[in-house]
Design a binder for these strands. Structure first.
Lengths: 347, 347
DNA sequence: ACCAGGACTGTTAGCGTTAACACGACCTCG
DNA sequence: CGAGGTCGTGTTAACGCTAACAGTCCTGGT
């Protein structure tokens, strides 16, 4: 029996012990009915100041905490939102999650999360299901993946859902950074440096953000009647960027490269360095995301910044509207900002 | 009235509508008592196969979903764990969270999170409080910060809590990567390259991991009777690493630097490059964390890898023990692994 | 003096679930 | 052939809370 707590030290085992105090216990101590206690605790309905004092004292003394389960059962509201996050350890999703969580907490909501590693209709569906069973009042799906649209369509309609970065076809409201415009800006910036064309290292084909960025790049070139080089495709990882870089080395007329994210741009830089190609002297490189590291790459990376906190805030706002019964189906865009650094600097 | 759903299209507004079906509804349709339905749903107690079929059919037809709140109310178990994460957009915490979540979901638990930006006794306390009010069964605190110890001491003892990366003084079980040993390995690796000493860019003084890494470095030098240079302190960010690098440039005998994390190491590399100091030719540099980018830094970074998935798994296991009533107070360490790359390569 | 109505408090009835026990039918064993 | 068990099912009573209504005072206007 190692477990005997020393005096003054709380027993830290989870012995069943006396259960948490309930409204009734507080009521007993304060000499009122449980309803009066409920009214004090929720500030609903009038209570004489004197009574309130007594109740509050009892609440304090007993360490009373309202039982969420009971409250949820009777009110039908859990005060919890669910977030489905795909690849939540990537910088973008993690930051978005953070933004949503902040906005939600400010409004008094708790957050339940469910990450899914590999996308696919089933897993997103499972995640939503798992959250629903936690009685969440609404769900945010962070899954900028093509399958997300189908998965979302399969979600029962009786719970409010909004998506972050989903496709236009999603049957729910979508909020997203303007990937297309961000890619356009990066591409035009590179062209403005005097290049005849811009190469592109794209993200995985089944990611919507990858598609939008690629489209932004492609259409910018087409609009000007410029040659559109074959895209090299990566998987967002620095490693795939490195491989893309090696594939690109030696291409004729390689003067400007737009990478679909900063991590791949890092791999590119590495591959170019190894091949003796200097950035920005020989080739200009731009990325996407503006991860905190980007400013300290070698050289510092020109990139497109996404305001994830704003995305989180707007997403929560949209979900709130949906939960209030609004029929919002629009697609909301958050503007992207071009950050120019040395990787596209003067030669 | 824009809201009328077209036939075949689900109404996506949250109109109150007929409430979710309950056990009683299913029971009615199947012609049994609600208890029989409960037994079928939970696979508790014997049910004749024939009856089970009928019940299952009704469950399916009605789209019955158990009401968690009611179940929690009566069983006292919510099936949810809480995670308090500090700076959850940093690579380490985000990965740990991911690891914990995975392990928890495998065991059938849901996860509620609560991030806190700035540490301090109150905010961690608030976060714990907020999670408790969500009726979590246990709490993981990811907060490798000195204030975490005090904050944890203030948490009521009636809920199981474990900490990730907390200090030895924490009144709860702690799980952590062996920071000290990781730092020792990095330092010894640098010394083995023939340097007379190793400089150190430390993390914020109030982070326990920063302290452990610094101690591992310092004591390794002291053990060999080597000179211990003054530490330069950063805040984990690449920017602070850059500034540290500029402060270091020109120091006499600067041959080897151990940075407390990879991001700062990146800043260091940048500062050295700008100053015309070559890595690894002039100076050797090592980091800590092994972020995915580290292998593609310029040059690729020697660093200490932390197995966050393993940390998450062990953390969940420990919490499970606590919830089962075990009085585990030990400190569990996950070994760190040195990854050697070009930044400490041959000259 | 009387009644309307507000302020304050209490009583009752669920919310949907599981725990605990009760009951009949059937089987097995001595 | 009856005692005692298991199987399959039902009944009842919580769990802790809020909604809805029912009182009981007290005040103020007529």
């Amino acid at each position: 029996m190692v477990d005997r707590a020393k005096p003054g030290e709380q027993a830290r085992t989870s012995a069943p012990g006396p259960r948490q105090p309930s409204l009734a216990d507080v009521a007993g101590m304060a000499g009122v009915s449980h309803m009066t206690v409920s009214r004090v605790v929720n500030e609903s309905g009038p209570v004489r100041p004197e009574t309130r004092e007594r109740v509050l004292a009892a609440v304090h003394k007993l360490g009373y905490r309202p039982n969420t389960a009971a409250r949820t059962l009777v009110t039908g509201r859990s005060g919890t939102l669910g977030v489905v996050a795909l690849e939540s350890n990537l910088y973008g999703p993690a930051s978005t999650l953070y933004g949503i969580e902040n906005a939600a907490r400010e409004a008094g909501y708790g957050i339940a999360i469910c990450s899914v590693t590999r996308p696919g209709r089933t897993s997103i569906g499972d995640a939503v299901e798992s959250l629903r069973s936690q009685a969440v009042e609404g769900i945010v799906v962070i899954a900028p993946h093509v399958t997300a649209g189908r998965a979302l369509a399969a979600v029962p309609g009786d719970i409010p859902v909004v998506a972050v970065g989903g496709g236009e076809s999603a049957p729910v409201p979508v909020i997203s950074v303007d990937q297309y415009d961000g890619a356009r800006r990066a591409t035009e910036h590179l062209l403005a440096l005097g290049h005849r064309t811009v190469w592109h290292v794209a993200g995985p084909e089944d990611w919507l953000e990858a598609r939008d960025r690629e489209r932004g790049w492609r259409e910018t070139l087409e609009r000007r009647g410029l040659r559109v080089p074959a895209v090299v495709r990566g998987d967002w990882s620095p490693r795939s960027g490195y491989e893309a870089g090696r594939a690109l080395v030696g291409k004729r007329g390689l003067k400007a490269v737009f990478s679909a994210n900063d991590q791949m741009a890092l791999g590119l830089l590495r591959a170019f360095t190894e091949a003796g190609i200097r950035v920005p002297e020989d080739v200009h490189v731009a990325g996407f995301d503006d991860v905190p590291e980007a400013a300290y790459f070698n050289p510092p990376l020109t990139t497109v910044r996404q305001d994830f906190i704003e995305v989180g805030r707007k997403t929560f706002g949209l979900l709130e509207d949906r939960m209030a019964g609004g029929d919002v189906r629009a697609r909301h865009l958050v503007p992207a900002e071009l950050i120019v650094r040395e990787s596209t600097g003067p030669r």
